[in-house]
């Protein structure tokens, strides 16, 4: 449909010269974007897949077939990082959905000023500076000088090495990650609540539906496309989280918080194994694409009831 709208009406003018001119103009308009796109996205993307079949030592490249992948499959650190990544994703996505839906539903009927203000508050961590937020959290979590341990000791609990204890480190990372993830979902939910037809909700209210019933049977289905989009972007973003890990724990203690993304960095830039790092990049990309496709299928079937 949009294609039909977008196609210029050309009945009133002769084909030929002006058509060629229009095509030429279109290519000129596209040229700069296409140049950047092919040099800095398409070429590296293909090159990344290619590199994953090589061993790189200094300037020497040796073809090793699937060795990089096989080595990874036999590497417990790889499986650990995959497990941690999945835990972070599985932890983050539902929290983001529930929390942002709660915030959006609570603020969307408020006055525009209050609404923008609150929306801004929850977006602040993500837009301000991820590094700043991470640095302040590393202070909050500090076993001796951190506010968190002070507060729990006041409540009578023992101090905890939040980032140094393998039992807590991943959860501590997840909390920071969550605060950085809800901004965009809240904006989307507020917009989509504003677009959903009031009349359905009111009709249900008159029919005596409880707030929960109204939500479960009317609002939630109406929000489904938005929820799908939020699930997909939050999943993708959770897979790619890096700065938080590097600055809070560097993947430690004892690989308790290492992730695929962090392994890509560590293997390339600390160990110097670019081939294996490329293979990890390919694996991560395949996982993300596969999950997005599955989520899309699943939610789509849920929307078209």
């Amino acid at each position: 449909m949009s294609d039909a709208l977008a196609r210029p009406a050309r009945a009133s003018r002769p084909r030929g010269v002006s058509h060629a001119k229009e095509s030429f103009a279109a290519y000129v308009f596209l040229l700069p974007a296409l140049c950047f796109f092919s040099v800095f996205v398409v070429y590296p993307m293909l090159r990344g897949m290619y590199l994953s079949f090589f061993k790189l030592a200094g300037r020497r490249m040796t073809f090793v077939g699937l060795k990089n992948y096989v080595d990874l499959a036999n590497d417990p650190v790889f499986w650990r990082s995959l497990g941690n990544t999945l835990l972070l994703v599985v932890g983050n996505v539902p929290i983001v959905i529930v929390f942002s839906l709660f915030v959006a539903a609570t603020i969307f009927r408020k006055r525009p000023f209050t609404r923008s203000l609150l929306r801004g508050v929850f977006y602040l961590p993500a837009v301000s500076s991820v590094v700043s937020i991470t640095v302040v959290w590393s202070w909050i979590y500090h076993p001796r000088y951190g506010v968190l341990n002070y507060l729990i000791s006041r409540a009578g609990a023992e101090p905890v090495a939040w980032l140094g204890d393998p039992r807590f480190a991943l959860a501590a990372v997840l909390v920071v990650m969550t605060t950085l993830s809800v901004g965009q979902p809240i904006i989307l939910y507020v917009a989509s609540l504003g677009n959903s037809p009031e009349s359905y909700v009111e009709a249900a209210e008159i029919d005596g539906a409880s707030p929960w019933q109204r939500f479960r049977h009317i609002v939630w289905p109406l929000l489904m496309p938005t929820t799908l989009y939020i699930v997909i972007i939050t999943t993708i973003n959770s897979f790619q989280v890096f700065a938080i890990i590097q600055l809070l724990t560097s993947g430690g203690p004892a690989y308790a918080t290492t992730t695929l993304m962090y392994q890509i960095y560590e293997r390339a830039f600390q160990i110097g194994d670019f081939g294996q790092s490329s293979a990890l990049g390919v694996i991560l990309a395949v996982i993300i694409v596969a999950i997005s496709v599955v989520q899309y299928r699943y939610f789509k079937s849920d929307v078209e009831y």
């Binding site: 996205v41 993307m45 990344g48 993708i236 890509i264 490329s278 990049g281 390919v282 991560l284 990309a285």
Partner: peptide, 8 residues
């Protein structure tokens, strides 16, 4: 995702 791109 960007990951395939970064190293190359």
């Amino acid at each position: 995702p960007k990951q395939v791109v970064m190293i190359p």
